[in-house]
């Protein structure tokens, strides 16, 4: 575990905290894509199946359980909380699951390190995580006033991916057998998706104005 990886994980954890804070404190999930949240839940469930058969560290296990539990909690608020569910922009959140899930599944079946059930699911989760933010980005383009908590949530998610890339570069040079092009390519694609967002995020921050993404 290096500092970049830890900072990435903390950024990821903080993003979830910011989202839960927004939902619980403001009783609103306006501007948040349920599709992205459900895709993340699918990512975590398919990737962390190894909780049942392989142990890496207490840190890893706690983080995995935390990410699954918080993802389920967020979905529960957005779908079933009487107050929160009324603030969900259902008509705007129109991205189709199949457009993302199907290609990722096909790709995982074709491009993987080992053709086993758990390995294919793990690879699927890597591909799906790369594109799971798309419904959220599309929803933000359609939302006129993006609130600060939503903007910070997405910024923290982007920071998490960026820090993981630095972590991979560090590990490439410090660990002799650390080669995983499949994860790296997906990670770079995922981070690139945030480039546009970060451009407007820093611009809004510099001029102290509200974030607005051009349609």
């Amino acid at each position: 575990m290096n500092l970049f990886r830890l900072a990435g994980d903390m950024s990821h954890l903080l993003s979830v905290c910011v989202l839960l804070l927004k939902i619980r404190a403001t009783k609103s999930c306006r501007g948040i894509s349920l599709k992205t949240q459900e895709l993340y839940a699918l990512v975590f469930v398919t990737r962390y199946l190894d909780l049942f058969y392989s142990y890496i560290s207490l840190y890893n296990s706690i983080m995995k359980v935390t990410f699954i539990a918080t993802a389920v909690s967020i979905i529960r608020y957005m779908r079933f909380d009487k107050v929160v569910k009324q603030t969900y922009d259902k008509e705007q959140d129109t991205f189709r699951y199949a457009f993302l899930v199907a290609p990722c599944l096909v790709l995982a079946l074709v491009l993987n390190h080992r053709f086993t059930f758990t390995e294919v699911l793990w690879t699927f989760s890597i591909y799906l995580e790369a594109v799971a933010i798309l419904p959220q980005l599309v929803l933000m383009q359609r939302t006129q006033n993006i609130d600060n908590l939503t903007a910070n949530y997405v910024a923290l998610l982007g920071a998490y991916r960026g820090l993981y890339i630095v972590n991979w570069i560090y590990r490439y040079f410090t660990e002799p057998h650390y080669r995983q092009w499949l994860v790296w390519i997906s990670g770079v694609v995922q981070t690139a998706l945030y480039a546009d967002f970060f451009y407007f995020y820093t611009k809004a921050w510099k001029h102290n104005t509200r974030l607005q993404l051009p349609a």
Partner: peptide, 10 residues
Amino acid sequence: VSKGATHDEL
């Protein structure tokens, strides 16, 4: 590619 190396991240 060693499996262990790729599965220790979150």
